[in-house]
């Protein structure tokens, strides 16, 4: 990533998202700087996931401009979407690990699809698994790992391509409080190394325990919030 510290890694201007006649997001202005950690909160169905989908170009805005990792997504041709996603790390609540591959292979998969050599893949995967504390479980299949460990593998997969931004959609949503805390500790550590993180959550305990910038989606618009 060529983004320098302090520069915008995400910039949205006048963005509107519609599904049919229904407007989900309206006139969104949003910026995320390099190294920043921001929570995106809001009620179920408020448009949090749509907001993230805009950022990895799973959907296009009806109006407005979206810039992510130096790419203008409003005019990004479909064939360049994979290039955008290689600059992002994406984490989901439901893990989305490949059940028939072990932890190592799941992380390595990310590099295989981007055409890295096996020697590079081995080195980077071991490093990423080390960062999430799972080197010793590299041969375990997803079903043999706990929820927290599976989410760590997902984080390792997101980190292995050395992205500039991490987009996390409810990463602790399926985890017990202890596992949630361990994932949040890990994300905080990653953020302290300089990676920008945008995390969707509705868990206020986490927001209070790990204070960061908070943005709320309310009635389709963004509101900056402060902890009470």
């Amino acid at each position: 990533m060529s983004v320098q510290n302090g520069e915008h890694v995400i910039k949205m201007d006048g963005v509107k998202v519609q599904y049919g006649d229904q407007t989900v997001l309206n006139d969104i202005q949003f910026e995320l700087r390099n190294g920043e950690f921001c929570y995106l909160i809001g009620k179920t169905g408020s448009g949090k996931s749509s907001f993230l989908k805009l950022l990895y170009r799973d959907i296009k805005p009806a109006t407005g401009s979206v810039r992510v990792a130096d790419m203008d997504l409003s005019n990004l041709p479909d064939r360049k979407v994979p290039l955008l996603r290689r600059r992002l790390g994406i984490i989901f609540q439901d893990f989305q690990l490949l059940p028939d591959r072990n932890a190592y292979e799941n992380v390595a998969f990310s590099l295989k699809v981007t055409g890295h050599k096996s020697s590079v893949i081995k080195e980077k995967v071991m490093e990423a698994l080390g960062q999430v504390g799972l080197s010793h479980k590299r041969r375990s299949m997803p079903n043999d790992l706990s929820g927290g460990e599976q989410q760590r593998v997902v984080i390792a997969r997101a980190l292995v391509n050395e992205p500039g931004i991490l987009l996390a959609d409810e990463p602790t949503g399926n985890l017990d409080p202890e596992a949630s805390r361990s994932i949040m500790d890990l994300l905080t550590k990653i953020n302290h190394r300089g990676m920008a993180i945008l995390m969707v959550t509705h868990d206020y305990n986490i927001v209070r325990r790990y204070p960061n910038r908070i943005t709320q989606i309310r009635n389709g618009s963004l509101v900056e919030k402060r902890l009470q």
């Binding site: 990895y56 994979p82 996603r85 290689r86 981007t114």
Partner: peptide, 16 residues
């Protein structure tokens, strides 16, 4: 489809 979603997620091209 899970495999396809995972591949898209990490930036694999449709051709790949």
């Amino acid at each position: 489809r899970d495999l396809i979603r995972a591949m898209k997620l990490v930036g694999a091209t449709n051709r790949f």
